[in-house]
């Protein structure tokens, strides 16, 4: 089949995902529940934990920081603004700041191990983390044993992709 889009035998597959709404939420822990209610989304307290509902996702990145993904930003921004007087916070749209890569395949952990110094294999499925890939700060979401999403700052993407291309070629040789 020459028209086949993906080589499913390839050790890794790297795809750019279509943009979605992405927001950075900063709020003090004592107001976390108020924002969670407003956004209709659990905001896990442990760094690296995630929650999801109704197509919305939250990843706790810091003690007062959550990354929120949603199909649309406007509803969330409005909902949060409504509780701002009682639960002051910052909800900043960063949909265009990063581009998300979908990484999968049997060698995906090897691909990440070329440039991520942390033990990515130790990141449990369903969790996420902010870390570094070579010199670029990235956010990793582990969606399956061999499935990740990686948010990369837009201008760093060519460098990250170049490195990944080298790693892909290397993995394909089986050495």
């Amino acid at each position: 089949m020459t028209t086949q889009k993906h080589d499913f035998a390839a050790p890794v597959q790297i795809e750019e995902l279509a943009p979605a709404a992405r927001l950075s939420l900063r709020v003090r822990p004592d107001h976390r529940a108020v924002l969670a209610d407003a956004l209709g989304l659990d905001l896990p307290a442990r760094i690296g934990d995630r929650a999801a509902s109704d197509g919305r996702e939250a990843l706790c990145l810091g003690p007062d920081e959550w990354l929120i993904l949603a199909p649309e930003a406007a509803d969330l921004i409005a909902a949060a603004a409504a509780v701002y007087p009682t639960a002051p916070h910052s909800l900043t749209e960063i949909s265009d700041r990063e581009i998300t890569l979908h990484l999968s395949g049997p060698s995906v952990l090897d691909l990440l191990a070329t440039c991520c110094p942390r033990d990515v294999g130790a990141l449990a499925v369903g969790r996420g983390c902010r870390t570094v890939f070579d010199s670029a700060t990235v956010t990793l979401w582990r969606d399956g044993p061999a499935v990740f999403r990686m948010d990369v700052w837009r201008s760093f993407l060519p460098h990250v992709r170049n490195l990944m291309a080298l790693a892909e070629a290397e993995l394909a040789t089986g050495l």
């Binding site: 900063r26 916070h89 910052s90 900043t92 265009d96």
Partner: peptide, 12 residues
């Protein structure tokens, strides 16, 4: 202080 900082260099 109740203030938060977010880098938007690449948002715009």
């Amino acid at each position: 202080l109740n203030v938060w900082l977010t880098s938007t260099t690449e948002q715009w």
